[in-house]
């Protein structure tokens, strides 16, 4: 699938008190996807990324799990309006959190609904016989997919009920991982910060630590700057509080995009001159200084002007 596609809701399961899992099918064959991929779901003009929970090798359906936040938004709307037999507009799957196949060991850390991409990775690791272990932090009684995780992970699972238990489980795990381990974490920002801090303290190079944010942080308005569009030679001002993507769109420059929150990576553009200020969650740690590309939906300029390869 390249553009939007309509999928049928074949089943809805109440996974925990506030998490529902949706089984989406199509009359056409579903494209395989990399573990850790997400589907972009659109409803009434709003789009949000949801992790696919299967391993992706030969999908008979696309499965996503959605937590009701109680704050409105797309997740709550899905809970309120989507029923079996209905249709959903989706695009993808897209891969922004892939496994590192040559890792000697995979350490998966999940907190709360962050279990969804980790479940996908765990399934793939088991399918291909990759060495792995899992740390799963959850609130008691609200652990999505816990039985499945237990069954897949077996003795390689550490369960951490509560934030304190998760913090000590992570601290202990990162101290004793075999050489060549890659770590994958998904959860709220505080947990991801904890993981990256603990890894740094234990001497992990940032290239070994892969995090998936399931909510994008609120970003400040940023300073105004200017861009030069190479193909047209046009110079466009980007005011504070307005994204570069919006400015480009208003000027008629087409940039492919999906999430508008710096998560999905779809809107990547090339930078020819100037230094971008990266505010996305896509670039891996080793590339946070990259000056040759940026995600204009959230990222801005560290210099007064940027020349764009558009």
């Amino acid at each position: 699938m390249t553009g939007d596609d309509r999928l049928t809701v074949a089943a809805v399961e109440q996974t925990t008190v506030d998490v529902r899992s949706y089984v989406l099918t199509s009359h056409r064959p579903l494209r395989p996807y990399e573990p850790g991929s997400h589907l972009v779901v659109g409803l009434d003009g709003v789009r949000t990324c949801y992790s696919l929970t299967d391993d992706g090798t030969a999908p008979d359906a696309y499965r996503i799990s959605v937590r009701r936040t109680g704050r409105g938004g797309l997740s709550d709307a899905l809970h309120d309006t989507v029923r079996v037999g209905g249709q959903l507009s989706v695009s993808g799957p897209r891969s922004a959190f892939p496994p590192v196949p040559h890792a000697r060991h995979h350490l998966f850390v999940a907190a709360g609904i962050g279990i969804t991409p980790i479940l996908s990775h765990l399934g793939a690791a088991r399918r291909w016989g990759r060495s792995c272990s899992v740390v799963y932090g959850y609130r008691s009684g609200a652990a999505a997919h816990l039985e499945l995780v237990r069954r897949l992970a077996g003795a390689d699972l550490v369960e951490a009920p509560g934030r304190t238990a998760l913090a000590s489980a992570v601290a202990e795990a990162v101290e004793r991982q075999p050489v060549g381990t890659h770590l994958y974490a998904c959860g709220p920002r505080a947990v991801l910060d904890l993981v990256t801090d603990r890894c740094a303290a234990a001497g992990w190079p940032p290239e070994r630590v892969h995090v998936e944010h399931f909510t994008a942080p609120d970003l400040d308005a940023g300073a105004p700057f200017e861009v030069l569009v190479r193909s047209s030679g046009r110079r466009l001002p980007v005011p504070a509080g307005v994204s570069l993507l919006e400015v480009l769109e208003r000027d008629g420059v087409a940039v492919d995009h999906l999430c508008r929150t710096g998560v999905c990576g779809r809107c990547r553009i090339g930078v020819l001159a100037g230094t971008p200020e990266h505010r996305d969650l896509v670039l891996p740690a080793a590339l946070r200084d990259a000056a040759d590309r940026m995600y204009p939906c959230v990222s801005r300029a560290g210099t007064a002007e940027l020349e764009l390869d558009l």
Binding site: E175, A202, G203
Partner: peptide
């Protein structure tokens, strides 16, 4: 040698 070390080894 590597099998007796952990991540953090340089």
């Amino acid at each position: 040698l590597a099998s007796r070390r952990h991540v953090g080894w340089r």
